[in-house]
Every structure is written in C-alpha cells, then in structure tokens.
Design a protein around this nucleic acid. Structure first.
Length: 928
DNA sequence: GTGTTCACG
DNA sequence: GACGTACGTGAACACC
C-alpha cells in the first residue's frame, strides 16, 4: 500500500501514464472475456505490464514514490480552446469501455494510487506533479512512450522511460526525435502539428523543417515575426497564412503545470502490495497465470483455478531415476495420473539420426523425473579419455518398461513439439499414443501473435523462464551433446521441460473449446505429428554421384563467369560481395543505381542487374551468371550431398508445423521445399532425387488451388464457371479483361492476366503489379481497375477481409483456422497496409494449407487400406511426393488423386473442383 | 548476429 | 507530399 512520505532530494518519483498503458494493453492482446462475459483483455494486459514494471523497479534506481495517472475522460479544457482537438479519434471500442473502471480497481489492488482530474489530461497532471517534485528537489521518471511528454525532460533530473523499447530517454533521445532540446519541443510541435490528436500545425512543415527553423529562430514567435525572410516561397506563404494555427497548436501541446492536484504527491510513498487484496482481485478477474506469479513472488499460498494448491516450479524437487524399482514406481504413478507429459533427450538435433539419451516424465505440476539412459562421463571423447559412465538403467530395459505406458490408450501423453519425440521413439520401436501437443494447441489459438516454442510459452503463460539448452550444453564450439551433461544438471533441465509442458497443457487445452478451436486442433493439427514423423523417418533417396557431377559442372561455370566479370571490370574483386559489386557498378563506373536496400546500400539484386544488362552493360550479366551457379552449387548440389544420412543413404528433412502464420508447413535442415524447378539448369538438381531400385517417385499436385479457393471463397460466378468447365484460367481472365478470344491468344496478353491473378492472391497493389510486369504504375492501375470491374466479387472479398481484420484483429480460413494480424493496429500506415494484404492472402493460402493437411492425414491409412507399398515422402505446399514400387504406381496415382481431390469433404463442399495432376518417374524431375 | 540475395509455392 | 508495398518460407554468404 502507498504510504505518506515527504519528498526531498533523495526521492525518486515515478509517474506512470495509465492511459498509454491501457491503449497498449488493449491493442497488444487478443480479446479475452471472463467466464461471465465481461471483457477483460485490456485489464489483463494492464496488470501484466504494471506487475512487470513493479518487479523490474525492484532492481537499481528504486522509486520512493509512485502513482498511475489516467485521463479523466475523452474531453479536456483543450476542447474549449479548439473544438476540433482529437476530433478525428474514434470513440473507445465497445469492449474497452467497461474495462476502464476495472483498470482503476486493478491499480488500487496493486497498492498504487491512481489519479485523474476532470477537465485535464493525464499529461497535465504528470506535468504538474513533475514540477512540484522538482521544486522539492526530487528526481522524476515518467513511464510513457508518449512524445508529448518529452517537453518535461531535464537531463539527470526528469527522464522518460519507454517500457516498450525498455529504454530511458534523455535530451539526446529528444534530439533524435525532434532535433532540438527538450525546452524547444513545444515550439517544434507547434509547427509540425499532430495528425493523431488533430493538432493542425503548419502544412508542409515536418519534423526536419521544423527543427531547422526553431534552431535558427529560437522559438515560434520569433520565427513568425521573421516569416517574410523565409526563402522557400511555399514555406513562407504557409507560415504567414497559418500563423494562428501554429499559435493555437502551441497552446494545445503545452502541458499545464498548475493543475489543482486531487492528491498530494506525499501520498505516493511506495510499499509492497497487500498479497491478499491483490490475489483476490486477480482471481476475480480469472487471471490464473498472473495470480500464480504474484503468489510465488509475494510468498502467498499458491493456488490454481480450482483453488487447490499448485506448486511453484522448483528444479531441485525433480527426481533422477536410475533404478528399475524407481522407474516402476514412476510408471505406476503415471498410469494412475491418466495425463502425463513426456520429453525425450537425444545427442543430436535431427530426430532421424539422434540417439535417445534419456526420457523425462511429469505426472502432476511440480512432480517430474528424468530417466537417463545413455549418459557418458563428461570427458568422454576427450584426448585423455573419459571416466566411468554414471550409473543408469540400460536403455532396452527402461524402454521395455516404458513402452506399455507410452502406448496405453487410457494415458494421454502430452508433449511440446511431440513430432520430434515420436520420430525418436519410433526408431526404438515405441509408438506413442494417444497424445496432445502443447505447441499445436497454442498455434491454433494464437497463430500470428507470438512463437510457440516452449520457452516462449512458459514465459507467457507461467511467468517462468526455464533453463535453456544453452545453459546446460553451452553454445558454439564449446557445446557438448546432452549425453555428456552431468546427471544432476540434466535432471533439472529435462524434468523441468516435462513439468512445464504439463502445466502448459493444463492451461491451454481447456481454452480450446471456449475459443471454438477444438475442431481445428483435432482435425488439422493433432494427427499431423505422427504423419510427418513417418515422412521424416522415411526420407528421400538422393544420388550423391549425380550431385558431385553437377557440383563440378557448376564450379566450372562459376569460374567462367567470374573470369569474365574480372575481365570486364579490369580487375578482380570479391564477386560474391554485394557491397563490392555496388561500389564498382554505382561508384567507380558511375551507373545510375535504382533501388536501395533496407540498410541504405545500393541494391544489386536480379531486378536491378537485369535492368542494367538490358541497358547494354556487360558486367551485371556476368555477375548474375556467377550468382546462379554459386547458388546451385552451394545451396543445392553441395549442401544436399552433405545432408545424406550415411546409414540410410537418404535425406531426412524436418517439417515445422508451427512456424508459419497461415498454416503452411516449413521444411528445414535441409529445406526440401525450395528445390529448383523454374530454370533448366536448376531442374538438374531434381534428377538427383531418386527412388530405391524397383521403385518410382510419384508427384501429385493441386492445380491452381489458391485461385480455385479464391473463386469459392469470394463467390465469383465467372471464375467458378471457368474452373468447372476446365478452362485455362489465365487465358479466360485475359479474354474477359481485354476482350480477346482465347483461341490464338497472344502469349503476352495471357502472361499479364496470369500476373494479375497471382497479384490478387497477394492483395494486389499497382506498385507490385507494375514491378512484376515491368510496366508503368498507371498501366498497372488500369489493369487492376478493369479486373475489379469484370470480377466485382473479388473486390468485395478484399474489402470485406480488410474490414474484418480492422474490426477483429484476425481472419480465418474456410476451416476455421485463425490467423492473427496484430500489425493492423500499428501506428505506421505501411505496417497496417501490410496487414491488410496479409488479411487478403491468409484465408486463401491458409485454406489451401488446410486442404492438403486433410489429404495428408488420410493418405497413410488409405494407402494401407489398399494394400499398397507406397510411402509419402514430401510435401511442397500444393504437392505431395511418394515412393512406390513401379508396378503399383498407377494404383497410387489414382488413390492420391481421389483422396486429395475430396480432401475438403465432408467438412465442406467446395463449389469448384479441386483437381490434382499426378505422374511418376525415376527421378523427381520426371515425376512432374 | 544482421543484412542481402535467391530458391520454392 | 513523399514513401514504400506485391503473400508465405529457409539457407548461404559477407561483414560487423
């Protein structure tokens, strides 16, 4: 609770801008309601932020006094000065309004005074308290990211603490923002105005010009008095014409330092919050995670949502199981628990090559063990040789005992990214079932909001930072494999992972139903770890000799292009350094460089270099040639050969299930989703992907699935008819748009229509289309307009998705997969527009991803039911690759087509046919 | 570790 | 009024 304490020169007053906190809490988090339907998302965000701040402040530079300051309402005395002040602000969202009083309650529950004053904004109160504290000799920290408070900064005495960037702002920070010292901020703001608050300013004057003018003239009045001297005609006219607007702006941005304060600042003395008051409040809000965190910190009895005790995470309480008797006791306990968390530890990253080193189990929160199976002495493998391995249960014995538990249909096994553990245990003959995956549960509920790795989820939901792999194994050259980690440390790490996973499951799984995502999880997520683990284990056969030969050919081509480049340039340089290429082309040769990269350097990418080549310059062509072959050699020929597993002779990729925001998979180590196909040279890589003797590869891919889904989702009659009639969709689009017959169409016209069709899926812009087709922006704009005239349903779809994401913060696929796009609330208009394009693309891309997921889930069973000896090996977004005995290829093709084409059913009936094209061959290139 | 480029759908 | 934009990924290399 706050206490009375006079301020003096030793005092440090913290003033928190509560309204800024509310705004951020509301927009940063997904909507959340209490079980009675009260919206509490912003309250939760506010509480989390306040708690974190109070905890962080316990370190150095502690506050002696602290208060949260709120705006009293949307209106203040500034509205009397200027009736348009903040007039362009929309009213507070409907679900935020009832949270305002709750947030005041929250503040008081934290034992922090909350202050507001009718007719004034929070900033005015902050300014007044700041002035008074300074008069008492105290230091002041204002916790806010609002630039309007920068005028109060005094170096060493008054600083602004931006919790968003976690950084203190002094006069140097003000100079970065406004280009002037804090005492000149109001002068500059008067000129710039503020579109957010509807402060007019002077048109045509932005931050740069304003700083320059104030630097020269000192203040606004002096500047206005000398306005006639300004050289730039437009600027001069505006300064004269809008002098009054500037004066008005200045009165609006100046903060009042003489409000009648509702509370004396002596009442802001700090003390720890009362544990009971605070936890009672948090429980009434149903913030389980924060309640637990607060209880842990304040030493109150810890409880979970049912009120029963849940132990805080205590790594020293975990057991290390090294005897068979112990293991059997744990297995019995697990059996009766019914829901357990499982985690495996291995000696390498790849699930397909790693050896099982240990298994951890958690049977209840805080109750977890680690069973080491193949640990060695930490010095094992060193020159001096290792000592004796620690005592542990033999791997075969332990697995034989664990297998019935892991396969018991009445015990639910919970894992975090369980695909990895499934793959590892599969190799030891254990088929884990049934299972839940906390990573995937998080993914279906909060895709797009954050990552879904265990450490991140733990911090987010448990407020607990688990031991990291690096803490235990080190990093870089000094990294050791897990089997060399001493047992005590290994136990803390491994058992904690199981404990955390089980706790996450207790929090996340029950949220699926209320959030309406249980079906998505059960049908599109839960079955996949098993399917993908089997695909990864199967791997794909790659011919190393073929790759070696290609590598040699590419090396020769690289050398040719490199020599030619040096000959043209007249000297040698590092041809793979974009920096040096830029220096030569745009520096020494003085060519006009077009684009800049993000970092401000000259761009030397294909589009730039091709443009130069078209203008007749020789060097860019040679560099591009070199790059093409360097890429093929290093990324494909050499890397792929190195990725061949020596014991299987095959390449085993890893598919990530939760790393895209849309529901697509990703492939890593190596990435087998970006194997070249578009150019003849690149396609040669595909010839190295082969089948076992007597087998062939079958490739089955959805034809135009995204455009078909667009036709269905946006309900475009012309597109749907074209797909039903089996027309060439790009030619049909061209015919509609340009009024030319499909027969004998100019390929150039079709190409344009094709680019437009792709552009539509990406949330088209005139700029993007123009760049893609190398045409003018005006022409691109005309194309788009014409397209929308012909297909108004598509334009309607786009507007609907933009409105939806602005309104709800997310969009959904046709199967209900949700994609959150928090960028839609960003203050940067570019970020918002980006989010709008994502909102257009995500339902299309994501629905296609859902369709192929459904097919993949069904295919292994369908193959088995037909008695085929085929294996599914790869997925490449709209394509599946299988390996099958040559004679069974026709049957597999028929089956794959049938399953893939009907994959949306019975959940949905798609109003256009989803057609699949399939072929077989002795290598991947041939199967296309 | 970050930035640039380029391979795929 | 200028700016920066097509959607979704992962890997290699240069450079700090």
């Amino acid at each position: 609770m706050a206490v009375q304490r006079k301020l003096d020169s030793d005092s440090h007053l913290y003033l928190i801008d509560g309204s800024g906190y509310i705004f951020r809490a509301y927009h940063a988090l997904p909507p959340l309601t209490r079980s009675d339907g009260t919206p509490v998302g912003a309250v939760q965000g506010f509480c989390n932020m306040l708690w974190k701040l109070l905890e962080d402040l316990k370190g150095e530079d502690q506050p002696s006094h602290l208060a949260v300051i709120f705006d009293h309402s949307g209106k203040s005395f500034r509205n009397d000065l200027y009736d348009q002040y903040k007039a362009n602000r929309p009213p507070a969202p409907e679900d935020l309004v009832p949270q305002f009083p709750l947030i005041r309650d929250a503040t008081r529950a934290f034992g922090v005074p909350c202050v507001e004053l009718e007719n004034y904004e929070a900033d005015d109160l902050i300014a007044t308290y700041t002035r008074q504290a300074r008069e008492a000799g105290a230091r002041v920290t204002i916790v806010s990211s609002d630039k309007d408070l920068m005028q109060l900064i005094e170096d060493g005495q008054v600083t602004l603490f931006d919790t968003m960037k976690n950084k203190r702002i002094d006069s140097e920070g003000v100079r970065e923002k406004f280009g002037v010292t804090p005492d000149k901020v109001i002068e500059v703001q008067a000129l710039i105005g503020d579109s957010v608050d509807n402060v007019p300013g002077v048109p045509g004057i932005g931050p740069k010009t304003a700083a320059e003018l104030i630097e020269t003239y000192g203040d606004l009045e002096t500047l206005l008095a000398h306005a006639e001297e300004i050289k730039q005609p437009k600027r001069r006219e505006n300064l004269i014409a809008f002098a009054e607007a500037a004066r008005l702006s200045k009165t609006l941005v100046i903060l009042k330092q003489d409000c009648d304060l509702p509370e004396p600042m002596e009442a802001f003395g700090t003390a720890d919050p009362d544990a009971e008051t605070l936890t009672d409040f948090l429980k009434s809000m149903e913030f389980r995670t924060l309640t637990r965190r607060v209880e842990e910190t304040l030493g109150a009895p810890v409880s979970d949502e049912t009120g029963s005790a849940t132990a805080p995470i205590d790594r020293s309480a975990y057991a290390c199981v090294t005897t068979m008797a112990d293991l059997e006791a744990w297995i019995a306990e697990a059996q009766s628990a019914g829901v357990i968390a499982v985690d495996t530890e291995t000696d390498a990253l790849s699930a397909c090559g790693a050896n099982l080193v240990g298994v951890s189990l958690a049977t209840a929160p805080g109750r977890a063990c680690y069973i080491p199976l193949a640990h060695v002495h930490p010095d094992e493998g060193d020159l001096l040789g290792g000592g004796a391995a620690p005592e542990q249960i033999a791997r075969e014995d332990a697995l034989a005992a664990l297998k019935p538990l892991l396969q018991d249909p009445s015990v639910l096994k919970v894992g975090q990214n369980l695909k990895y553990d499934l793959a590892v245990l599969s190799r030891y003959g254990v088929d884990v079932r049934p299972y839940d995956d906390t990573m995937l549960i998080s993914y279906v509920m909060e895709s797009g909001l954050h990552g879904h790795g265990m450490d991140e989820l733990s911090e987010l939901h448990l407020g607990h930072k688990p031991l990291s792999f690096k803490d235990v194994c080190g990093s870089g050259a000094k990294q050791i494999s897990f089997d060399r980690v001493p047992l005590d440390k290994a136990t803390e790490y491994a058992a904690e992972d199981a404990d955390v996973t089980l706790r996450l499951h207790e929090i996340l799984k029950p949220a699926l139903g209320p959030r309406g995502k249980l079906t998505v999880y059960e049908t599109l997520e839960r079955p996949l770890p098993r399917v993908l683990a089997d695909m990864e284990l199967a791997g794909v056969k790659v011919d190393p000799q073929r790759l070696s030969r290609l590598s040699g050919e590419f090396a020769q081509k690289m050398a040719e292009h490199e020599d030619e480049a040096y000959r043209i340039a007249g000297r040698s340089f590092n041809i793979s350094s974009p920096k040096q290429i830029g220096e030569i082309l745009f520096g020494e040769m003085g060519l006009p460089g077009g684009k800049k990269t993000q970092g401000g350097a000259w761009s030397t990418d294909v589009s730039v270099m091709e443009k130069l080549a078209a203008e007749g310059h020789e060097l860019p062509g040679a560099i591009l040639g070199y790059r093409t072959y360097a890429k093929l050699k290093s990324t494909y020929a050499d890397a792929l050969k190195a990725a061949i597993n020596s014991s299987t002779g095959r390449v085993h990729t890893s598919f990530s299930l939760a790393s895209t925001s849309t529901g697509r998979l990703a492939s890593t180590d190596p990435n087998l989703m970006n194997i070249p196909i578009r150019t003849e040279e690149g396609r040669k890589i595909r010839e190295a992907f082969i089948a076992e003797p007597g087998n062939v590869l079958v490739s089955a891919d959805y034809s135009q699935i995204e455009l078909r889904l667009l036709a269905h989702i946006a309900d475009v009659p012309e597109l749907k008819k074209a797909f039903r009639d089996g027309l060439d969709i790009h030619a049909m689009t061209a015919s509609e748009m340009f009024g030319v017959p499909i027969e004998g169409m100019d390929p150039m016209v079709r190409r344009r229509a094709k680019a437009i069709n792709f552009g539509i899926i990406y949330g088209i812009s005139a700029f993007g289309l123009a760049a893609n087709l190398s045409i003018g922006r005006d022409e691109a704009k005309e194309f788009i307009e014409r397209y929308f005239e012909k297909f108004p349903g598509v334009a309607d779809y786009m507007e609907a998705k933009k409105a939806e994401v602005r309104d709800r913060g997310f969009v959904e696929t046709i199967f209900g997969r949700r994609v959150h796009l928090p960028g839609i609330k960003d203050k940067n208009p570019n970020m918002r527009q980006f989010a709008e394009r994502q909102a257009i693309n995500a339902p299309i891309q994501g629905s296609a991803a859902d369709v192929i997921r459904r097919a993949m889930i069904r295919l292994p069973g369908a193959i088995e039911a037909k008695g085929l000896n085929a294996r599914m090996l790869l997925q490449v977004h709209d394509e599946l690759v299988f390996e099958v005995p040559e004679g069974e290829a026709p049957a597999l093709i028929a089956l794959a087509k049938a399953v893939m084409e009907t994959a949306a059913r019975p959940a949905l009936e798609i109003s256009v046919p989803l057609t699949v094209e399939a072929a077989s061959g002795h290598h991947w290139g041939e199967a296309h």
